[in-house]
Design a protein around this nucleic acid. Sequence first.
DNA 1: GCGACAG
DNA 2: ATCTTGTCGC
Length: 172
Amino acid sequence: MQPVGWSLVKAETHFPYVPGYLAFREVPALKEAWSRLTTKPDVLVVDGHGVAHPRRLGIATHFGVETGQPSMGCAKKLLTGKYNEPGLLVGDHSPIMAGAEQIGYAFRSKSKTAPVFVSPGHLLGMENSLQIIRQCIGKYRIPEPTRLAHELVNRFRRGELPEGMTYGTFTL
DNA sequence: GCGACAG
DNA sequence: ATCTTGTCGC
């Protein structure tokens, strides 16, 4: 739970936002930022779905396949599939089903708060995605990796970051 | 034909 | 996602 590096990029979009095709809009910029990231993480948690996608190819899976990077998805809303409401306590979870196939988990990242939806992306499985997101729980609904990344990119967009601070590494 | 629909 | 006004529980 300790940040070790970051990479921020400003890029033009060349594809509209269409549910089910998010990767075609955001992966280009994501890869650009990824290329400038000196210290790659063991697992990338993407803001979106992994295999919990109509064709099992959400942005986390798409990016993972194109880069060979282990990844998983953690989305704020369901895209496809059905699930029963998990328990109300942090850590409670229930499977997201597409017919008889499990494609992810509805996970309670904060007690009495709407769950987040996690699923494997690339090079890791269903249980792995659950174990990993469990270790990313902080004080808020959004798991720390995604929450901290959003906080940083928002400061970047508002021009609140010092010049030459678009990427770097923290020393631990 | 109708509803659902990541960011 | 963005914008905007008000409300709710801890």
